[in-house]
Design a protein around this nucleic acid. Structure first.
Lengths: 217, 217
DNA sequence: TAGATTGTTAATCGATTAACAATC
DNA sequence: TAGATTGTTAATCGATTAACAATC
């Protein structure tokens, strides 16, 4: 990574992951009543360290005021802009099984600027149907459609054994970021980001915690 | 954390999260053909560092052999036991909206030893219905049912603004581990684990990556 | 034996937290 | 001014990776 890139990504991965939490919390506040919010207040509400909050917010250059805090309205706006929620990102999804259907019909993503425009599957019984108004097309059309519509985000919700081939298709289709729900490690060119939504990892943590509790009880 | 606790949890959170990846990969191999697998081979397949793999596997005490590697069958068994997938954990889910319905109907969790036994909701139009054979009950029955059935895992799939109250109910119901899909930071007693499935954080990473790509192009 | 691999100790890297000057 | 807060530098903590002895 060059020096230039460093200034570019002057925020850590961990900090970036926390930004949506701040934004979500700040948006939950009553902007009529609360004009200013301080880092200790945010930290307390979210169970974080106040220095961490300040450092994270410093990265988005929203400029707080000593003694008072941050201007709520401005902070929300800056977070929104920084996270890119203001401009909607279009995505395609492959795999219209249980999980895929859920993701397509889940309304919550639009809040975060993600819009799933179409689904793909190989199963002829689901191809041609609609899920919440979104069409399900045959997988063969993935590459041409992505190119034509300049879609940059691909969501993988297929079984682990088919994940890599779908991934390869997405790369071919010019997708730049892949959100992978399959429990598989994907191999991609360096410029493409794979974000694993690793439910198995989460379950491992839960399971371990319970085992510990049980053996103690 | 006491010295005793340290030996107890001699594995790091990050390492624990990787164990399911190893298990998943090992299970995908043909056990007839492959009797032995080495850490460099696992590392290469999953795109990890081989020392990291060895260190992670050392924590589960499966004992590899210098020059050859690990016995595949034994390693799978040990990982399975360590992760607690062998004994199924029963869970309740609150919130039968889009996401909740998806989670209830998703078959994949049983592989990881998680069995969602029943759903809860406050909406009278969904209470009494069934989703993939799982009943949806009124939220008032949560506490009594969890106590009666000794359920230890709770899944929260309600909007952010209701997450804390549902969480409090779960704590009252004796739940020990909470899998939280709501974009909210939950406050719980120290002995209870909250595992946040933070889709907003993942989207933040995707969004940032794309923004960078775009500005460069 | 020579060579490949395990398991562990030491060095490095990155993220969090503590300390503190600057500010209003 | 006194006091609360920001922003940054230094110290700490935890995880990853490099180095290497032990093993078969």
């Amino acid at each position: 990574m060059t020096e230039l890139d460093k200034t570019y990504t002057a925020i850590s991965v961990q900090a970036l992951k926390r930004l949506p939490l701040y934004l979500n919390y700040l948006k939950s506040l009553d902007r009529e009543k609360t004009k200013i919010i301080s880092s200790p207040a945010i930290a307390k509400a979210l169970g974080l360290n106040e220095v961490q909050v300040r450092k994270d917010l410093a990265a988005i250059k929203s400029g707080g005021r000593p003694r008072t805090g941050y201007l709520l309205e401005k902070l929300i706006g800056d977070l929104d802009t920084y996270l890119g929620y203001s401009n909607v990102n279009e995505a395609v999804l492959v795999g219209a099984g249980h999980l895929g259907r859920a993701l397509i019909s889940y309304q919550g993503f639009e809040t975060y600027g993600l819009n799933i425009v179409v689904g793909f599957d190989v199963d002829e019984t689901v191809v041609g149907t609609e899920i919440c108004g979104k069409k399900v097309l045959p997988l063969e059309k993935l590459v041409s459609l992505c190119h034509r519509m300049h879609v940059n985000i691909g969501i993988i919700a297929v079984p682990a054994e088919n994940a890599q081939e779908v991934c390869d298709l997405m790369v071919e289709a010019g997708i730049l970021a892949i959100w992978n729900f399959a429990p598989a490690q994907l191999t991609v060119p360096a410029h493409i980001l794979v974000q694993n939504e690793n439910m198995a990892s989460s379950l491992a943590l839960l399971s371990k915690h319970l085992k510990k509790k049980m053996s103690k009880a």
